[in-house]
Design a protein around this nucleic acid. Structure first.
Lengths: 329, 329
DNA sequence: TATAATCATGGAAACGTTTCCACCACAGGA
DNA sequence: TCCTGTGGTGGAAACGTTTCCATGATTATA
């Protein structure tokens, strides 16, 4: 790394002169300026922002951070909308940290940034990680996740699962299955529990549970499901994206199967897909607001958890059969 | 601002001891530790991350930035996916800067961050802003935008407009209208030009152009359009979201109207909506890749623009009429 | 009791800037 | 000739940490 000292030596001038040339502050003779500029470009000098910030005393604490799982599901888009809305009202800015292949790295990355507080989306943190953040005086707030004594905003997944089950029961279904994600997220476990327990209590237990590696595989899962259990008359999908991807398989079945998704993404309305509505944007907004209050010491200890309720949105009939004319690719 | 020096003075210990207590490195006697910790919390000490980074030599140049317009359209979600995919392959991280109410502020914010390069999404930068970034040795790359001699990846909107027009002509439409956004983005201007010019060249000029403040208002726009121009037999929407929001109005019309959207968002497939496909994720991926090459000096000057082509995706029939049963809210 | 090992501790040096002050050379004015 | 101002320059100090080395105190070992 080239520093100003290197440049000064190379150009045969003093440190101050280099600084003056780089920043255009103060007087420098034409001759000297040229020498310095030559050295600057020869040595490919880049000012060190850290050092600059240190001396200017500008610690720039105007950011909130969001730690997200792999950036792949539209659900997050809506939550982020809400987060942004609040953050913007406060004239702050937002940094997204992707909890990708190396979760630990994400944490160490974000600790290097000058953020005031952190929203952690859809998953928990290890006690070590929490301690680390606390040590940095970094307040945090969970979104779409809950834990014993943690602060945050979440949507009641158990209740959502129950709502779905009640829908299938009300529709008179006798053989209901679940299609979800590989990987045991808290969200899926709770939805599934609420769902299967309600069915069971009604003396109408779940007949099958298929987990797929990606939502794009849910059509195959449904085909397998219907082959194994031709009696299936209802399918609860972990999310709308799973449900939507399964539409072709449902169309092939040419059989009346009650379907329920989850999330209530915009497009479900136009598809006639019954789903469980999650107040996504609200959760984002409220989460950001809570974090803001926590950071500013305005959140009473018993005012640090918000539980939002999902709701059933009944729609139908399903828009099936528009797949054959698809000429994409 | 409380510094370690203050703490040391208050606790009557040396600088090194404070550092050891704060970081838990090296041995400290119980007694001393307690004194220091008392001072720490009394004076509400927060370590200065800037100073830390300076000394650790970790300039943290592992970030790319994305400067985005208001975070409101799903389109960006797909572009971001592609960006993330590449950035992650490089074991880097991403910071999102929202170009909200105060675009200048966003720039000054992002200049304070240690980012290697910046992707600018869907809009241009003023010459002053560009100069500013250049001065900071911050490479940039435009996404979904193009300019005289600028580097970046964009999708040919003029061509997309033409494709849409050709679709309406092929379907034998005689009275075609456009419904778009208030606000004259480059994207809309070019799409509209390509669209109206193609229609005109075919001797079948556009009959109306409605601009709505938000896509959610497009149903009303369509109702007004059909009232003013009952002869309308085709509508080109600026984006799929506009088209989708107009579905109820189209259902009411109970008349065969050819519709074409733009973007090819996932759900259009299941709605039977004809649309212009944009390679969104590809654009994000390629943009990030190009920025990476530029930053690492591996991009030849004539290798700094990529133009992607949209394509027509014909679908149908439109899934109309599932709106009445919607019990949401 | 002497020697070595270990534990605690203080503080200087370094990180790469910016800012400020001091200095020099030279011009112009008295 | 001597001031005085000024454009040009060098480098010390400061920003708030971490790291390392030296030192003193304590304990274990012989």
């Amino acid at each position: 790394m080239t520093t100003m000292k290197d440049i000064a030596k190379r150009a045969g001038v003093g440190l101050g002169t280099v600084s003056r040339v780089v920043n255009g502050t103060g007087p420098v003779s034409q001759e000297t300026r040229e020498k310095v500029e030559a050295a600057l470009s020869e040595m490919n000098y880049r000012p060190n922002r850290i050092a600059r910030k240190l001396v200017s005393g500008n610690t720039g604490r105007g950011f909130y951070g969001v730690l997200m799982p792999l950036f792949i599901h539209p659900f997050y888009f809506y939550v982020l909308r809400g987060v942004y809305r609040f953050v913007e009202e406060q004239d702050m800015n937002l940094i997204l940290f992707n909890r990708g292949k190396h979760p630990e790295e994400a944490i160490s990355h974000l600790m290097q940034e000058d953020i005031l507080g952190l929203m952690v989306m859809s998953h928990g943190l290890s006690p070590e990680e929490e301690a680390l953040l606390k040590n940095e005086k970094l307040d945090l707030c969970y979104l779409d996740y809950h834990q014993e004594r943690s602060q945050g905003v979440w949507i009641d997944n158990h209740y959502g699962g129950r709502l779905a089950a009640e829908h299938f029961l009300a529709r008179g279904c006798k053989a209901v299955a679940f299609v979800g994600d590989l990987g045991n997220s808290q969200q899926q476990i709770e939805r599934f529990d609420g769902f299967s327990q309600t069915l069971e209590a009604a003396g109408n237990p779940l007949i099958a549970r298929h987990l797929v590696p990606r939502e794009y595989a849910s059509a195959d899962a449904v085909r397998r499901l219907l082959a194994d259990h031709p009696e299936t008359d209802g399918i609860f999908f972990f999310s709308d994206t799973h449900a939507v991807e399964a539409l072709p398989a449902l169309a092939e079945a040419a059989k009346d199967i009650v379907v329920c998704g989850y999330d209530d993404l915009d497009f479900t309305r136009y598809l006639g897909l019954t789903t469980i509505h999650q107040p996504k944007e609200e959760m984002g907004y409220e989460g950001a607001k809570m974090l803001h209050r926590i950071v500013h010491g305005q959140a009473a200890p018993d005012d640090r958890t918000i539980t939002l309720k999902p709701s059933l949105v009944t729609r139908g009939p399903l828009a099936l059969g528009h797949f054959s004319e698809d000429q994409k690719r």
